[in-house]
Amino acid sequence: MGMARFLASRLLKGVVVLFAIAVLNFFLIRAAPGDPAAVMAGEAGAADAQFLQQLREQFGLDRSIPYQLGVYLKGYATLDLGYSYRQQRSVAAVVGERLPATLLLTGAAFIISLALGSLLGILAAARAGRWSDSLITTAALVFYATPLFWIALMSQIVFALKLGWVPNVGYETIGAHYTGLARALDIASHLVLPALTLGLFFTALYARMMRASMLEIAGADFIKTARAKGLRPSVITRRHIARNAILPIVTLAGLQAGQLVGGAVLTETVFAWPGIGRLMFEALVQRDYAVLLGVFFVCSAMVVLFNIVTDLVYRVADPRIEAA
């Protein structure tokens, strides 16, 4: 299969999956009790039938479900994500405003977990079966096995409050109005705690996968050949095993991209990070259907794209092809 055809078929499949997700989400969220009008009434602490009726008309909730579904799908077909009546802005604007923060957070966390995870995995595999192997895997597990929100709060207390090294919450210093490099540094200092919290959570997973992958590749025929050729073990580990072992990790990490966004819900909540993970949870409890569906769609689309990219990378650099 040529690359163009492969890409076309993957994209088509991606679109089908996204379409199915869009439809499922539509019904799923409407199955939840209450609607946006109920939320507004609840928040206002005052309501009457006329108030609720006005809101439902405004939100278009008085129309039939098939009609609402039609409007929604028609919009999505033209990449129009709809309108949030609660926020009085288009969903694209609402999500677009929050997306960079999440990309920054998950990107940083992804790099941390992949780099640290692979490193720990390589170290553990090299010592497989010895006590230091268990120690490394266990150490990596500390951050995986402790509830993320607990780690998040603990880190705020220790590093922001007691030590005063970094700010505890937010995206940047509010009211400082930095620009240029000063702003970048300011954002970076706010990023430290959330990125580490989220990144360390996934480190254990990648360390485990890397270890297993290393051990598996170490047993493969082409490595035996390399050994037979008399290459030094350190060279074999570095050049042949680690390099080949990391590819499946990247692919698996691609599949995990969705998990990362899911993990961002908690991280963004505890660190007041203005990203789409938190937006998703807020939209859910506000029954802001349009925003919730938009966030789900954008997340899913990102995962689909990410998977296609990793597939491509994998095809371009298949370890077995190189080994042959």
Partner: peptide, 22 residues
């Protein structure tokens, strides 16, 4: 496998939250 992919594409924790809320 399309169905499986479908469920792997939705961020799982987010889906769990929505399911419990629903």
């Amino acid at each position: 496998m399309r169905i499986t992919e479908f469920f792997q594409t939705i961020p799982s924790f987010a889906l769990a939250i929505v399911l419990v809320a629903v």
